[in-house]
């Protein structure tokens, strides 16, 4: 892990020194041992802030649209899943390819920081993180800890499709083995087995908890509307009131608005303060798009046309 961090810093420094970019967006140490935070580096001296490891859950491609109209180029550190966002943003004409330098880092899975943090002595400081393949060793000044990936990985990482970036200008770190997951949609299939009443009850319970903080929408790299319909005051499509009806309207609209564009980065799931399993909604759409249109996960290749964004006379129209 240390050599990846070293190389990241060197490359970022080079990019800034040679004025190839004005800004590097990467991961820096967060305020908890097992946590990172996005950092924005605009000078070669700042690169020492950069870090890497199994606590880099955020999808930093999200920030690229913030700099859409800014002068200068931007480098961004992405994992495999995040790199799908870049392809998608390019296809949506949200960013221009020549303004972005993509620093791809192969990833062997991200751990849930809260779970890891709960095991580590509070106040301990980090010495080193070592990836052992099936587990991660965290060495601290208060002792060494080992975390089995199967128990600590973020949900989304358990069925990772792209451990290696699908688009990048420079890749740092060792390529990771790609696995095939037969049961990638197991959770969705379990939901599909439920009766309509059971499904309703399940989602009603989830949506009732929603605070409508809009973290799921705001963290989404492909939610790129300038003004979201849910922020509009006139007309007020949904009010500030939280109730099952309006919460449901929000969540279903959100899921369908990114249908065919959602890259399955799982950030909506991660950030929900009420643990609403939002990714399941998007996964259901992914599964259906796969079944109906043999459509791959959006963003896995550049130039993929969204199945809902094109019309072909050969499309099945069983519902007509």
């Amino acid at each position: 892990m240390m050599d990846v961090i070293q190389q990241l810093r060197e490359q970022a420094k080079k990019l800034l020194e040679e004025k190839k970019v004005d800004l590097v967006i990467g991961f820096g140490q967060g305020t908890e041992l097992a946590r990172t935070t996005p950092v924005f580096i605009d000078s070669p001296e700042g690169v020492s802030k950069l870090t890497w490891g199994p606590f880099c859950a955020n999808n930093l491609a999200k920030y690229l649209t913030d700099y859409k109209n800014a002068p200068g180029n931007i480098a961004v550190v992405v994992k495999g899943c995040d790199s799908r966002s870049i392809n998608r943003l390019l296809d949506d004409n949200q960013i221009s390819r020549d303004k972005v330098v993509i620093i791809g880092v192969p990833c062997s899975g991200q751990l849930e920081w809260q779970k890891v943090s709960a095991e580590i002595k509070p106040g301990a400081s980090l010495k080193e993180v070592v990836d052992n393949g099936d587990s991660v060793s965290v060495k601290t000044d208060a002792g060494d800890y080992k975390f089995d990936k199967k128990d600590y990985l973020l949900h989304r990482c358990l069925v990772c499709e792209n451990p290696n970036p699908v688009v990048s200008d420079l890749t740092i770190g060792k390529e990771q083995p790609v696995k095939n997951y037969e049961d990638r949609f197991a959770e969705v299939q379990a939901l599909e087995q439920m009766s309509t009443e059971e499904k309703n009850a399940y989602w009603d319970k989830q949506f009732s908890r929603c605070l409508r903080c809009y973290a799921c929408r705001n963290v989404c790299s492909v939610c790129t509307c300038q003004t979201c319909v849910f922020d509009q005051m006139l007309p007020m499509w949904v009010s500030k009131r939280t109730n099952l009806s309006e919460n449901t309207a929000f969540h279903l609209t959100r899921a369908f608005h990114v249908a065919g564009r959602c890259v399955d980065c799982g950030e909506c799931d991660r950030v929900c303060p009420m643990d609403i399993p939002l990714r399941k909604l998007n996964q259901k759409i992914h599964k259906d798009l796969g079944d109906l249109f043999e459509s791959p996960t959006p963003g896995t290749k550049p130039g993929l046309v969204s199945p809902l964004g094109e019309f072909s006379p050969g499309d099945p129209e069983e519902f007509m």
């Binding site: 935070t37 920030y63 913030d66 903080c213 809009y214 973290a215 705001n218």
Partner: peptide, 28 residues
């Protein structure tokens, strides 16, 4: 600085905060 750059503008901090008390009034 970085806080303004990295903030995604969601309402999580304010809604989970026990002292945040801003409200909006509207007719339904």
């Amino acid at each position: 600085g970085d806080n303004a750059k990295k903030c995604i503008g969601c309402g999580t901090c304010t809604y989970v905060c026990p002292t945040c008390h801003c409200f909006d009034i509207f007719d339904y």
